[in-house]
Structure formats: C-alpha cells, structure tokens
Design a protein around this nucleic acid. Structure first.
Lengths: 125, 125
DNA sequence: CGGTATCCTTTTTGATACTG
DNA sequence: CAGTATCAAAAAGGATACCG
C-alpha cells in the first residue's frame, strides 16, 4: 500500500489500531458515517475544521483498510455515499467509548487549558 | 497552554479525547507506564520506533493534561519515574480495548498491506 | 540520566486548479 | 460533486549539543 519507515508490528494491537484509526479525524469520520452522514460534501460541512483535502485522504485510507465502502451514483452532479463495512462497525464501540470519556473529561481539560494548573512533580530521594 | 487554530469543542467528546490521546504514541506510553515501565530511558528502549525528542514531548503533554505524574529522585545520575494519575487510569479501558481490537484485526490488516486487495466501490444509479 | 534548545530535513497541510 | 495533482507554507521529526 505504501512504505513505512518502521514496519507495523502485527503482534502489537495498539500499533495495528493506530495504523487504522490513529489520525486526527478518523474517529469523527467513523462516527458521522455511522450516523448516516454519507457524502463528502456533508462530512466537510458537519465536521468542524476538516478540509476537503484531508477528508479525501482519510476517507481513502479508511477505504483501503476496509473500514468503509462507497456507492457511486453516476448522476450529474456526481453523488458518492460512504458506509461502514462490517469490519468498520466493530470500531463503533471504541468510538463511543472515546466520545464518552471525552465528554466526562471535558470540564477538566477546559480548566487545564485555561489555567495551566498542573500537578507538581514529586521530589524524592 | 498553547494556541490552536481551531479551539477545542468541549461539547464534542471525540474532539476532547483526541486532544489528549490523539497522537501516535500516547496509547503506547499509557500502556507501558501502566505496566511499570517508568523511566524515559526504559520507555525509549521498550517502545519500538519512538525517539527521545518525541517521547519527551508526549510525556510533557500527558503530564500537562494530568494523565501522568512524575517523581524525581535527585540521585546521580538523575532518576525520574512516571506514573499514571487517577484520571490517567480512566484511560486504561480504552487502551485495552484498542489493543484488543488491533490484535483481532491484525491478520486482515496484514493482508491489506501486502496484497492491496480492496473492496471495489459499488456503481449504482 | 533527564530535559531543553537549536539546526535542518521530511511530512503534512491548505489553497488552487483541473478532470470526469 | 468527487477526486487527483501541484506548489508553497506550516508542522513534525531526527540529530546534536548543552545544562542541571
């Protein structure tokens, strides 16, 4: 598919998982696609901050990895709709868990970002 | 803490979560630290492919976000040990789930990476 | 050893234009 | 509209040196 400086360690689950979903927008993409936001144009409009170029790239990777598939409607203008594959759906529990964790941690992160309050290191020995 | 082009959306759990763990090595780091690999030197040696510089940067971010803390032993040579904070430990179920998913998906990813076999898009309409 | 800073190279990204 | 290619700007990364 493409060259990696350091080959994937297929015995390390985290390594494998990061290869598939380890980029800024992929969890969001899987989430939105699972909710029925299917067209690239709609995804760009729905996901705050993503650009067409990056969207295209991430969709392509998810597709190559077999997490999503697409249906092409040869209309004018062209219409393309993405959907989760069966394998892709196995990622949804992770997406949900991440989202849930994030919501719970949000207030604390907000405090951190605004006050830069940080636990001081313990000095020992 | 630092400037973001697009501010975090604290109402979007995925957005928050990605801010905290959305970089290549953080899941690995949390995993290793939870297993007791505590010193930077050991982390570099244990995690395949990470460099000192990136390790330092990620440890710092995790620390600022309150996921890890550190104890400094003022010995010669200096010894520093990282540990998971209580909040940091709430990430472990996610780490475990990611790892598990990755291990299950590994054979398929390997096939994808080697054969580039890919589901063809459906042509409709 | 752990942490920060500097220099320089490699990747990634955004903007734009073009094709089907 | 969807997708690819190009170019310049921005960000991330490796190597190295220095300090406590």
């Amino acid at each position: 598919m493409y060259q990696r400086k350091i080959p994937i360690d297929y015995n390390c689950g985290l390594n494998v998982a990061m290869e598939v979903v380890g980029s800024k927008w992929k969890f969001c993409l899987l989430d939105e696609i699972s909710k029925g936001v299917a067209r690239p144009r709609d995804l760009v409009n729905t996901i705050n901050g993503i650009t067409r170029r990056v969207l295209q790239k991430d969709l392509r990777e998810l597709e190559v990895h077999g997490m999503i598939g697409k249906t092409i409607y040869t209309e004018v203008p062209l219409r393309v709709e993405y959907y989760l594959t069966e394998v892709g759906k196995t990622l949804l529990p992770l997406v949900t868990a991440m989202d849930k964790w994030g919501l719970e941690f949000a207030p604390r992160l907000k405090a951190v970002m605004e006050n830069e309050e940080m636990e001081k290191p313990v000095i020992a020995g």
